[in-house]
Design a protein around this nucleic acid. Structure first.
Length: 355
DNA sequence: GAGCCGTGGGT
DNA sequence: TACCCAAGGCT
């Protein structure tokens, strides 16, 4: 039994019919749809699951309901609402893009592909998504969902991240993208990938393209998309210093580049530091005399490209904070009155335990 | 262009 | 446990 061929027009018609019956239409960013809300959701959804994004989206929109409110806000406020979501360059880029829209486009959201792609954080696929979802233009998306659907439909067994495979997929995505109902089509492709053509255990028997799917007919569904060779990630160790003065804890702002860029963190000593090293460090870095350090339970935090074994160690000081020591780079964080700043997830957890 | 950039859920 | 990877983009 051969695979039934499919024209672009038939694909569109059947996908849209499926969407009308089974698509998602009640996600928060689909209500009161504006380019701004679509943009925020698309950035949050980069490499992040829908269920994780929803509460962040609600809080973010409540605090920054439009581009101008976002542009006017301090970056620390933005990072505060982003804290825990990860990939913090997204938040920094979002803020910078909001400033650009306010200053260069008079607060009017850009509506062309090329202009959108000049904004930091918006690449080819996100630009296509915004065009389609917010402006009903035939923007082309190629995210993980679309790649999986198209690769299976066409039986592409090559590694999904190959350059040539990528080009093939963009061409296929363009071929299928309709001129009308661009928003529904785009949402439908993502919904099909997210709810039917899932990575594991796809619901092929409910798929509108069952008869047309090369992967299904050749029993290749489980092999497509082919997973890239897994690279093992290294483990690093660091000592995180919990430097307490009464109800205050010392936090340092991290540099913009690198992990947790722009967020506030506990002072960090590379490797596993012993008591003597910690006392010496406090004296040299902060001019503080501290009590005998007390090591807390070590735990592991995993990033996208390495593990970090964290060794928290607590010390106390009685010295009053000086004006010299308080700066935007270095703050005494009041455990009883949390500031609106960005804190990495493991730091949130540690501070929470101290409350 | 390959490495960098977070976190949580699924298996 | 360990590994995969999710509505990617930037350098």
């Amino acid at each position: 039994m051969p695979v039934v061929p499919l024209t672009a027009h038939t694909f569109q018609r059947r996908l849209l019919s499926w969407f009308d019956a089974h698509g998602r239409k009640h996600l928060p960013w689909q209500q009161h749809k504006t380019p701004y809300r679509v943009w925020i959701s698309e950035i949050m959804l980069q490499q992040t699951q829908v269920g994780t994004v929803i509460p962040y989206f609600q809080h973010f929109i409540q605090r920054f309901p439009d581009v101008l409110s976002l542009a006017k806000a301090p970056l620390d406020d933005v990072l505060h609402l982003w804290a825990g979501l990860g990939y913090y360059s997204r938040a920094r880029n979002l803020h910078q893009a909001a400033v650009m829209i306010a200053e260069q486009y008079q607060g009017r959201f850009p509506d062309t592909k090329d202009t959108l792609q000049t904004l930091p954080g918006i690449g080819r696929s996100t630009a296509g998504a915004i065009l389609a979802l917010a402006f009903e233009q035939p923007g082309i998306i190629l995210d993980g969902n679309v790649k999986r659907v198209l690769a299976r439909l066409h039986g592409l067994t090559q590694p999904i991240n190959d350059k040539t495979t990528e080009q093939t997929l963009w061409a296929l995505a363009e071929n299928y993208t309709p001129v009308i109902r661009a928003a529904d089509y785009t949402q439908a492709m993502m919904d099909l990938g997210a709810t039917v053509c899932t990575r594991s255990k796809p619901a092929c028997l409910t798929c509108p393209f069952l008869k047309n799917c090369t992967a299904y007919h050749h029993h290749l569904t489980a092999c497509i998309p082919q997973k890239r060779p897994a690279k093992k990630i290294p483990t690093q160790e660091a000592t995180f210093l919990i430097l307490k003065r009464g109800r205050h804890v010392l936090l340092c702002k991290r540099p913009t580049q690198g992990i947790w860029g722009g967020l506030y963190c506990l002072p960090e000593i590379a490797g596993l530091a012993d008591s003597h090293t910690v006392i010496q460090y406090c004296q040299q870095q902060f001019k503080l005399l501290v009590s005998e350090p007390k090591a807390l339970n070590s735990f592991r935090h995993t990033f996208s490209h390495y593990h970090l074994q964290i060794h928290p160690i607590m010390v106390q000081t009685k010295k009053a904070p000086t004006k010299l020591m308080e700066s935007t780079q270095q703050i005494w964080y009041n455990l009883s009155k949390p500031l609106a700043i960005g804190l990495p997830k493991p730091i949130q957890t540690i501070l929470e335990a101290l409350r």
